Structures are given as C-alpha cells and as structure tokens.
Computed example of a mutant assay.
Amino acid sequence: MEQRIGANSQPLEGAGFDPAFIPGLTAPASAEVKDAGPEDTRPEEAEGAEAAAEPVALTKAATDAETTVDEDAEDAEDTEEAAEGPVFEASDRRARIVADHQGVRLSLDEEKCEFRWDEIGAIETEAPRFGKRFTITVHTPDRRWYPIEIEATSRSRFKEWEEQLDAVLDAYFEDGDEEAENEAENEAETDADD
C-alpha cells in the first residue's frame, strides 16, 4: 500500500492565484511554448523555427505597409471630398467631433460613432457659463441623444466653433421644418390649380 506524505489537495486555480485566469488581463501564452520545454528542443529544430518565422514576419510587415497605404489613400480621398464644402472639427486630448458632407463623427478615447445627415434629427450646442467644456449633442429621430464634451483652450473658441458648426449645418443639414413648408406650398399650389 502506497501512502503520500503531505497535503492531499489539488493546487487552487482562479483569479486570486493566477492573473492569466481572467481572459484579456494578460496576453495568452502560446501553445508551442507551453508544450515545448528546453530539453525537448534540439538546435536543428530551433534554427528551422527561426527560419520559418522570418517569412511570417516579412509577410506581416508587408501587410502592415499595405494597410498603411490604403489608410493614407482613404484619408487623401476624404480630404479631397471635404474640400467641397465647409467642415467643422474640434478636438481635445480625449474627444473629437468632425462634421462635414458625410455626416457627423464623434469619438471619445477609443469609442467612435458616425451619423449620416439623414440619421440626425437635431444638433444642440451648449457653452457653459463657467469652465471650458463645450458640449455638442447629436439627437436622432428615434429620441436618442449622443453628447460629447470638448475642452477648449480658451472660452473665445466657443463662438468660433458655433459659427463653424452653423455653417456646416446650413450647408448639409436638411431641417424637417423646411420640408414641411415645401409640402404645404405644394399642396397649396395643387389646391389653387383645382
């Protein structure tokens, strides 16, 4: 009969004992490193693994370069198209808003959202009485709103930003009141013709 000396319990697992237990907290360990120990690796295999890794690294670098070129081309197209009309852009260290012919794009840290002009019900601005945080709120027709606060370098920027935003709204935003007026005029003309 075999007896063990010491504790008969299994080692504990969990976030309290292993930070890698929580997904996303640490980088996942690769299966190759876990399975292959130092005594299992032969020098010939190590050289082959390094040689095989070189083309992968070169392919990844080429893919990254192509992605950068594609992004630069898209940025160039955006700037060409943006030159057609007025553009409003305001940003600080965390938040950014861009309003142009495509619509309104908001970003805060890593989160981004984009609204086409037909998805926007109203845009509201608010300049605080004290402080330097300018608030822009995008309202959608389904009664949702998306506020973003931008910290200005000085309070004089508020007036400049409002003027730029008004110019963009006048150029691209179709107000529902104008459409209602046009429909009312068309109905009045058809009634007059009858």
Score class of each variant (00 low, 15 high):
99 A>D: 07
63 T>C: 04
6 G>W: 04
173 F>A: 06
84 E>M: 04
81 E>R: 14
65 A>M: 02
189 E>I: 09
138 V>C: 00
96 R>H: 15
19 P>L: 06
17 F>R: 11
102 Q>I: 10
125 T>L: 08
14 G>N: 03
137 T>A: 12
148 I>A: 05
1 M>F: 13
137 T>Y: 03
123 I>W: 02
177 D>C: 06
74 E>A: 02
15 A>W: 09
12 L>A: 11
26 T>M: 08
172 Y>V: 03
150 I>L: 00
79 T>G: 05
100 D>P: 07
71 E>C: 07
89 E>I: 10
49 A>C: 08
88 F>P: 00
144 R>H: 13
175 D>P: 01
187 E>T: 08
30 S>Q: 09
85 G>I: 01
129 R>F: 11
101 H>S: 12
151 E>G: 09
66 E>I: 04
49 A>V: 10
118 D>K: 14
168 V>R: 00
194 D>Q: 06
46 A>N: 11
123 I>R: 01
118 D>R: 14
154 S>T: 14
34 K>D: 09
136 I>K: 03
20 A>V: 06
58 L>V: 03
183 E>C: 06
173 F>K: 02
30 S>Y: 04
2 E>G: 13
112 K>N: 12
113 C>H: 10
134 F>C: 02
62 A>Y: 02
109 D>I: 09
133 R>E: 04
168 V>A: 01
26 T>V: 07
12 L>H: 09
138 V>L: 01
66 E>G: 05
156 S>E: 15
105 R>S: 15
47 E>K: 14
58 L>T: 06
142 D>A: 10
87 V>E: 02
74 E>K: 01
183 E>Y: 10
143 R>V: 12
67 T>R: 03
5 I>G: 10
121 G>L: 04
132 K>V: 09
121 G>C: 07
86 P>S: 12
147 P>T: 00
175 D>L: 02
61 A>F: 01
122 A>H: 07
46 A>Y: 14
184 A>E: 14
169 L>N: 00
17 F>C: 05
176 G>F: 08
18 D>W: 02
64 D>G: 03
56 V>E: 11
166 D>M: 01
106 L>P: 02
166 D>R: 00
113 C>I: 13
165 L>S: 00
184 A>I: 07
33 V>P: 02
151 E>F: 10
84 E>Q: 08
187 E>W: 14
178 E>L: 15
7 A>L: 07
139 H>G: 07
178 E>H: 15
33 V>L: 11
124 E>K: 11
145 W>E: 15
151 E>D: 11
90 A>P: 05
56 V>I: 09
15 A>P: 04
130 F>I: 09
55 P>C: 06
51 A>C: 06
24 G>A: 07
71 E>L: 13
